[in-house]
């Protein structure tokens, strides 16, 4: 097809317009969306005691809120605790989820038909209510106030939904690849670890990320299992700043900004996989 010069020009202007319109819309959205975040960042470097400042540009800039965070609270310890619980929990959950999803995708067994759906429905019992039962259970198996106890609970509560997502991904991987391995004499475990698992990497990253973010921000489960300042995770420790009697918004804002950094960094470095994982798993028809 050939265009006359005027049509081509028109097309160029149209593309130019579409790019800049998109750009404009994105910039406006960013501004609207980031408004509270900028406000919060401002508070973290302003003097005084309130997140609610009446000016967006602080009159007195100070890093004291950040310094206090390290000097007056156990922020570093909380971050360390969070890292332990979040990483171990996510890894354990991943292991349990992957094997389960693989079984649901490749093997035949009793309960395969409705098992996963029943588990997903069970997962919907609100955690705000089961915490008392979880506490008693943790005491019973002597894991109360231990990271291990929390890690086990974290891993368990997220399995059903993630196993469903991951099962879809396994289904999208052609069985022929594993089949040829079987023909070469591999057993099911080798087929799983050597072939299916590596192929599933994008989805594994997705599940890992979902879990990490939700464990990292969890407050409820941590509050019932862990007890005392030295054991707190970041999300739990930060509660200190939101008390009605000791509200210290700038310090809370500073803590939030620091606390979200690890998540942001991990998120962006793994973002590529996130897109791939979500797509393939779900696109399976």
């Amino acid at each position: 097809m050939s265009h006359s010069p005027s049509v081509r020009l028109k097309k160029k202007t149209r593309i130019f317009l579409s790019i800049n319109l998109t750009r404009l819309l994105l910039i406006i959205t960013c501004m609207v969306v980031l408004f509270p975040i900028i406000w919060m960042a401002t508070a973290s470097i302003s003097k005084g005691s309130s997140l609610f400042s009446s000016t967006i540009i602080p009159k007195n800039i100070t890093l004291k809120n950040y310094i206090n965070l390290f000097e007056k609270t156990k922020f570093i310890k909380w971050i360390r605790n969070s890292a332990i619980v979040t990483l171990c929990g996510s890894l354990l959950a991943l292991l349990e989820t992957t094997t389960m999803a693989y079984a649901f995708s490749r093997f035949r067994f009793k309960g395969k038909k409705n098992g996963l759906m029943i588990l997903i429905l069970l997962q919907m019992l609100p955690a705000t209510v089961t915490i008392v039962a979880l506490y008693k259970l943790a005491v019973f198996i002597q894991l109360q106030n231990t990271f291990l106890g929390l890690i086990l609970i974290y891993a368990g509560t997220t399995i059903p939904f993630n196993a469903w997502l991951m099962r879809g991904y396994f289904d999208s991987i052609p069985f022929e690849i594993e089949e040829s391995a079987y023909l070469d004499g591999a057993n099911h475990w080798q087929a799983f670890t050597k072939i299916a698992f590596p192929l599933c990497l994008p989805m594994i990253v997705v599940v890992f990320l979902f879990n990490m973010i939700s464990f990292y921000n969890d407050y409820y489960l941590a509050s019932i299992i862990l007890s005392g300042n030295d054991r707190y995770t970041v999300a739990l420790g930060m509660r200190f700043f939101t008390q009605p009697y000791a509200e210290n918004w700038p310090m809370f804002a500073a803590a939030s900004i620091l606390a979200c950094l690890p998540i942001v960094v991990i998120f962006y470095s793994l973002q590529r996989y996130l897109v791939q994982g979500l797509t393939k798993g779900a696109l399976k028809g």
């Binding site: 008392v132 506490y135 008693k136 005491v139 109360q144 106030n145 509050s223 019932i224 007890s227 005392g228 300042n229 030295d230 707190y232 739990l236 420790g237 509660r239 200190f240 008390q243």
Partner: peptide, 21 residues
């Protein structure tokens, strides 16, 4: 001595004390 958050600690008291924790 265990230091902790007011709400977290006081909310745990009714379950923690009978449980021996």
């Amino acid at each position: 001595i265990t230091e902790g958050n007011q709400f977290e600690m006081l909310n745990n008291i009714p379950v923690a004390i009978p449980a021996g924790e």
